[in-house]
Nucleic acid binder design. Sequence first.
DNA 1: TAACTATACTACTTTTTAGTAAGTTATTGC
DNA 2: GCAATAACTTACTAAAAAGTAGTATAGTTA
Lengths: 103, 103
Amino acid sequence: MKKEIHCPLHYAMNLIGTKWKPLILFHLLDGELRSGMLQKKIPGISNKMFTQTVRELEKDGLLSRKVYPVVPPKVEYKLSDRGRSLETILRSLDQWGLHDCEK
Amino acid sequence: MKKEIHCPLHYAMNLIGTKWKPLILFHLLDGELRSGMLQKKIPGISNKMFTQTVRELEKDGLLSRKVYPVVPPKVEYKLSDRGRSLETILRSLDQWGLHDCEK
DNA sequence: TAACTATACTACTTTTTAGTAAGTTATTGC
DNA sequence: GCAATAACTTACTAAAAAGTAGTATAGTTA
């Protein structure tokens, strides 16, 4: 079964339809964060998945990664314009979860 | 690493954050559909994944499943109120994908 | 009586995703 | 000269998701 995109929603889900991507984008809505801080905001994510996921988001142009050549390392992440364009959706999903889980 | 819910968005993604769930819900926005029709609207999904996914959505109360005791079988799916409450988000995601993929 | 129908289920395999634990780096502070 | 630091990276394993192919059903139509 081939991996083809059949509609815009399908396309969107291919970009952000995973367990962690929306969480990471969501926590960057309020501004850029250092790697460690961002990761702390997402309890339950493993170190490996965190790195892997931000790298994919970077590859897809949803966030940017700024590396400072210092030791110990310093890396900052922030949303790109493309990533920021998801703000309404991410906040809506969060709101939806908030109301829904009360039931 | 335990599977715990840490924020509303995380909760929401646990319910609909998979490859096929949003697609299925999306295609039910315009009204109930027979199983075969719904499946045809989602090219690329295998028969097994279709059945499995609608069953999970039913279990989570996002859609309802009506079985007519006839031969050959007739099964209809439609959104529950809970599922319908995702309408804005699903349409937004679709729109986002539409605009984004043009770039 | 044999094929066809729409839907689902099952066993099995492959692919993808995720988790664990260890190692790397170059400078600072003791 | 040794530990601590932040952010990976890698090798390995485990678990989850997805795909393939085959089976069941019981009426209708050829």
